[in-house]
């Protein structure tokens, strides 16, 4: 590679990094600004302060943020787990079994993934309030499944296609019981796909806003994105920019950790084996 090419690549990489990370950095800087500093029109804080983080963890915004964080984590994790279990069964059937209706299931999943969420939030609200699911964890977990299931089914189905299922029979021929064959041969092959799907599903559940504001009204179930929209500052009418920025950074941390640790798997999962290795 020539020096010129190297330089070109360096510039390209730097541009990609800035484009991708700048807004995050921007709100990170906001989270370290004092109230007066936020109004100053500067990019960097003139003095770093932890006051905004104190506000959301121990201060006045605590009662709004901590329950929301708990809800977001609980609901997203449960919804992800459920989606992955249901989708694994479904995708296994699609990949391995020959049965009529397969196509219908895949098309339905596709259709559901295109569904305008706002269209169903009102009727769901009406049903939920009648059966007591309004403002509960379960009341969010169920609609989250409509967001996470379709992509999970498609991703897993593609993963399972690539598993050499014949190995299972080979292991059985070698004397393993069918359960042993499944556990020793198939599970290790399928696990990365399931795990990747879980991460993608978690991102989707973690991101939800419409169900979050439409189907909750208190800290009993309100997730973080919805809570952010209702944030208040240190006092009643103070601009909550600092507290919101700090809270936004906190909920971005899990995303960053997952991305750092599993970028290769996520890309592979999203491009579905098109990028091998």
């Amino acid at each position: 590679m020539t020096t010129k090419q190297k330089l070109g690549w360096a510039i390209a990489i730097v541009i990609v990094m800035i484009w991708s990370l700048f807004p995050v950095f921007s709100i990170l800087m906001n989270s370290f600004k004092s109230n007066a500093d936020l109004q100053s029109g500067g990019f960097l804080p003139s003095a770093f302060t932890w006051a905004n983080y104190e506000m959301i963890f121990t201060g006045s915004a605590r009662d709004l943020f901590l329950p929301a964080l708990r809800n977001s984590i609980g609901i997203s994790v449960i919804a992800t787990a459920l989606a992955v279990v249901l989708a694994t069964l479904c995708a296994y059937a699609i990949a391995r079994l020959d049965f009529r209706g397969k196509r219908i299931i895949l098309v339905t999943a596709l259709a559901v993934s295109m569904f305008p969420v706002v269209s169903i939030v009102t009727p769901l609200f009406n049903v939920w309030r009648q059966i007591g699911l309004y403002d509960t964890w379960l009341g969010l977990i169920l609609p989250y499944l409509s967001l996470t299931l379709p992509i999970s089914i498609w991703t897993l189905a593609a993963f399972f296609q690539q598993i050499p299922w014949d190995l299972e029979r080979a292991a059985q021929v070698d004397g393993a019981t069918s359960f042993q064959a499944f556990r020793k041969v198939i599970v290790p092959l399928a696990a990365p796909g399931v795990f990747t799907t879980a991460i993608i599903a978690f991102f989707i559940a973690w991101n939800d806003f419409v169900f979050g504001i439409g189907l909750t009204s208190t800290d009993a179930a309100r997730p973080v994105p919805a809570a952010l929209a209702f944030f208040t500052g240190a006092s009643m009418f103070e601009d909550p920019a600092g507290a919101i920025s700090a809270a936004a950074i906190v909920v971005t941390i899990p995303v960053i950790i997952l991305v750092l640790a599993f970028q290769r798997q996520i890309v592979a999962g999203l491009t579905q084996g098109a990028v091998k290795g």
């Binding site: 990609v16 921007s26 952010l228």
Partner: peptide
């Protein structure tokens, strides 16, 4: 890895967080 990680950050970030990041950058006060 670095490039993928960088690109995946906006993918994984909460839309509401992105909205606030851009809003605060352009807002006349903040």
């Amino acid at each position: 890895g670095v490039v993928r990680t960088a690109i995946l950050v906006p993918y994984g970030i909460i839309t509401v967080v992105s909205a606030f990041a851009w809003f605060y950058a352009f807002d006349i006060n903040t």
